[in-house]
């Protein structure tokens, strides 16, 4: 379970997040939908306990991200918007590094690595150094790294960015599998179609505020149109001129 209450965050003069509240439930896929610069990444960074909110609070599995960030980091797996792999380390070495930082025992760690290589279909390239990996291969390694400690909560920042059709499909399959396993999955996106294809709940964020929070069906009903893109634009209250 993830709960966010009225968080706000300012970077120098930019108010990235004004006031955002929402929840994400276990066994469901929740999407943070919004245009670029809406405050999606900042919200996810607060959940990963990388930045502290100026106001409000956020909880992961009932643990406050400001009060006990280390405990939160053990409960959450984060896929950053760029994979952020170490180019001179192999796929497995990248995954192993994070597994050790999570404090997994060697036996458990190797067992998890094997399972993830199988689950994410990485056997062909996991032994190679990540320099020169395709975007799809990089995302898989980064995802395995985020899942190494088998976290109950998985946060993905625009995971399909730069992926081709097959890689996107593979990723969707993996995200659905996480849902089947009862995980709380939260991902950000600015692509309505992707959100529609994948998620159960949707939180629309625009200009640092929540514009909608509900199921995907409720979202369609509120917009009163089957054109998803049009619905998104209406609800997010953006025009082509909206400063981003």
């Amino acid at each position: 379970m993830i709960h966010v209450h009225n968080i706000a965050k300012q970077f120098k003069k930019v108010q990235a997040v004004k006031s955002i509240s929402f929840g994400a439930a276990d066994g469901r896929i929740t999407a943070l939908l919004g245009p670029n610069g809406a405050g999606k990444s900042t919200t996810l960074r607060v959940l990963a306990a990388v930045v502290k909110p100026d106001g409000g609070s956020a909880e992961v599995a009932g643990i406050d991200v400001v009060k006990d960030p280390t405990a939160v980091r053990k409960k959450i797996g984060v896929l950053p918007h760029n994979s952020g792999l170490y180019a001179r380390l192999s796929g497995i070495e990248n995954i192993r590094y994070f597994g050790r930082l999570q404090g997994l025992s060697n036996a458990l760690l190797e067992q998890r690595i094997e399972a993830l290589i199988d689950q994410l279909d990485m056997a062909d390239f996991a032994q190679r150094r990540t320099a020169g990996f395709s975007q799809g291969q990089k995302i898989k390694v980064a995802l395995a790294r985020a899942l190494i400690h088998n976290p109950q909560h998985v946060v993905l920042d625009e995971p399909t960015n730069g992926l081709d059709v097959m890689a996107t499909r593979a990723l969707r399959r993996i995200i659905n599998q996480l849902k089947q396993d009862g995980k709380c999955v939260l991902f950000s996106s600015h692509i309505m179609q992707e959100v529609d294809a994948l998620c159960d709940d949707v939180v629309v964020i625009s200009q640092g505020e929540v514009k909608f929070d509900g199921t995907i069906q409720a979202f369609r009903e509120q917009a009163g149109t089957d054109d998803l893109e049009e619905a998104f634009i209406q609800i997010a209250d953006i025009t082509e001129d909206t400063p981003q």
């Binding site: 960074r45 990963a48 306990a49 990388v50 280390t70 405990a71 980091r73 053990k74 959450i76 984060v78 950053p80 760029n82 994979s83 952020g84 792999l85 170490y86 180019a87 994070f98 930082l101 999570q102 404090g103 980064a142 790294r145 985020a146």
Partner: peptide
Amino acid sequence: EHGSLEPLLTQPIS
């Protein structure tokens, strides 16, 4: 610069 700092900081290490 390589973008690996942020994922590193999401790990439970002080």
